[in-house]
């Protein structure tokens, strides 16, 4: 179902607010990955706050989410807090000793994290395993896997792509956060990933694409993908790394750089907040 105007505006407002929270947390702790979290903001937020069935973090019938590009986990924690699965006060413990909020997703420490991640290229396989378990258990859930485009340089992703087409669980949706930038530079500079839609199609997938920063467009793409059962579906979400903060946009240097006081103030000015907020 298309988003209503109210829901669309509410989600857009929430994304803006989560972006502010994200830079505030990452500035405070002086570690973490802003770029990939900002490019995945609308994707993760639309899934968690609109599309996924999530009555409780351990409900066996819940939809699953695999953050295969695990470094974007700060945006996932913000969404888990928004769902009430973790207290908002806990967010500032991110990456600190003793915290449940690890630098990369950890399924056994954090309520609401379905699969651990860190080493890239494993999440699509793990998501496929969860989807197949769901089929065996006759559950009706959907498994979403969020992949980075740089991550698709890992060969294991394509092993998983082949296997997903063969086993076709009917409830697996992959999403590529296609921001075109990775740690050392652009995809094209480091290792061109080519025509991702054509690649997935040739592996037996249905491919969809959308503007990954347009919550309505992304929501529609998810609805479409859920109608596809004869093959696995992938949504290539066109995004901008560092989206929303002009000096971070499209810059590989903001993959994992600490945010200075000056940059933090500039970021907040752009996002329409203040440093005390």
């Amino acid at each position: 179902m298309p988003l209503t105007k109210e829901r669309r505006e509410a989600l857009e407002e929430l994304c803006l607010s989560l972006r502010k929270d994200l830079v505030t947390i990452l500035h405070r702790i002086q570690t973490g990955h802003p770029g990939g979290s900002l490019s995945a903001t609308e994707i993760i937020t639309t899934l968690y706050q609109e599309k996924m069935y999530l009555p409780a973090p351990d409900d066996p019938d819940r939809d699953r989410f695999v953050l295969s590009k695990g470094h974007a986990v700060p945006m996932l924690y913000l969404n888990l807090a928004e769902k009430g699965f973790i207290p908002k006060e806990e967010l500032l413990t991110l990456r600190q000793a003793g915290s449940r909020l690890q630098g990369h997703p950890c399924a056994h420490k954090t309520p609401g994290i379905d699969v651990s991640a860190g080493p890239l290229g494993l999440g699509l396989s793990a998501g496929l395993g969860m989807a197949l378990a769901g089929r065996l258990q006759k559950r009706n859930h959907t498994v979403y896997v969020l992949l980075g485009d740089g991550e698709l340089q890992e060969g294991g992703c394509w092993e998983a792509a082949m296997a997903a087409a063969k086993f076709n669980p009917g409830n697996l949706i992959a999403i590529v956060d296609h921001n075109g930038v990775q740690l050392d530079g652009t995809n094209d500079e480091i290792m061109p990933v080519g025509d991702l839609a054509a690649k997935f199609r040739s592996f037996g997938w249905e491919t969809l694409s959308c503007d990954g920063h347009d919550v309505s467009a992304f929501s529609d793409a998810v609805d479409q993908a859920k109608q596809i059962h004869d093959k696995p579906a992938v949504i290539i979400a066109e995004t901008v790394k560092g989206k929303g903060i002009s000096f971070m946009e499209g810059k590989n240097t903001w993959h994992g750089k600490p945010i200075s006081d000056v940059d933090y103030q500039a970021a907040l000015n752009e996002l329409g907040g203040d440093a005390n907020g």
């Binding site: 699953r64 494993l122 396989s125 496929l128 395993g129 258990q137 294991g156 998983a160 082949m162």
Partner: peptide, 25 residues
């Protein structure tokens, strides 16, 4: 129905197993 021959792709096989286990298999 409970047997998954993934072909010559050991990395994928083992990660798939992780997903299956996380869902109770």
């Amino acid at each position: 129905d409970r047997y998954f021959n993934v072909g010559i792709a050991e990395l994928n096989m083992t990660s798939m197993a992780a997903g299956l286990a996380l869902s109770g298999m």
